[in-house]
Write a protein that binds this DNA or RNA. Structure first.
Lengths: 157, 157
DNA sequence: CCGTATCCATTCCGATACTG
DNA sequence: CAGTATCGGAATGGATACGG
């Protein structure tokens, strides 16, 4: 996506994820898609980005299998962009980003847009790391279980 | 960070988060920092990025308060980069990305680097969305609790 | 309404080369 | 070792203008 040294073959899931959705607009588009935005123009208005960029991003997201195109639900002749199952699974990433931003990037006076449980209208519980058997885990309790984070397979020509 | 229309004043936490760490290398650097990488050269070797880029990214991350510089622990004359508390809180974001990538971006035959609980050496439990009172939440059960996702119009009154 | 095609400015990345 | 100084190429992003 971003030229770089494309890490889509790296064994590190983070590198791959970033390769897939690590550019700036992708996750914002996904965020809107979660909010049931489906139409090109709707995305464009809400995000305020140029149409060519939006078109490119949507194309990429469709190619990645995160969005898919469907016939319009309102009978118009156009297509709509909706999240695939894979795309919907990004919800955890979004929430993680949301909660981190909420906690670390707002001044006392500022009010972030909140994310709520639809039923109770209460904020969600913060995501928590847990061991397989359900115990809490601190950042320092984590280790990487394989050779190298970013191997040199993508070394040099 | 990526020029754009800098959204660091947007009320949406995702936009702000992306503004802070949404570019390509930042999270990879943070990932290494979680793995106790602290030295300039160490980052450079492991990530394989150009030194000027690395320098710029490190500078930004320090400016954001995600990394901080400390005197070297081994007595050498240099500084080390270590995660701040704010930086360490990014662990949830990293895990979310890690788990999503692991689940969605690897072919059956491929083996991702795993992330383990240090004590048991078992993979972590998948992050789960929950309501404030601990019930599971599906993506469709979520709503946004404020005016507009990216409202420039509700700027300041 | 949904895009594609252009043009242009900015930024990013990679690869040296060069100091302290 | 830890950067800074450059340079060029690629890609991003913004703003229209133009077709389906």
């Amino acid at each position: 996506m971003v030229k770089r040294t494309s890490m889509d073959k790296a064994p590190c899931p983070i590198a791959r994820s970033l390769d897939a959705i690590g550019d700036w607009w992708s996750l914002l588009i996904v965020r809107e898609a979660f909010g049931n935005v489906r139409r090109f123009n709707e995305f464009q208005k809400r995000l305020g980005l140029a149409k060519n960029i939006l078109a490119a991003r949507l194309r990429d997201l469709v190619a990645e299998g995160i969005l898919e195109m469907q016939p319009a639900s309102d009978g118009s002749a156009y297509q709509e962009y909706v999240l695939t199952k894979k795309g919907r699974r990004l919800v955890t990433v979004m929430i993680a980003l949301w909660q981190w931003g909420e906690e670390n990037l707002f001044e006392p006076g500022e009010v972030p847009t909140r994310l709520l449980d639809k039923e109770t209208r209460q904020p969600l519980r913060k995501l928590q790391l847990q061991t397989a058997d359900g115990h809490p885990v601190r950042p320092s309790d984590i280790m990487i279980g394989a050779p190298a984070p970013v191997p040199e397979l993508r070394a040099r020509k």
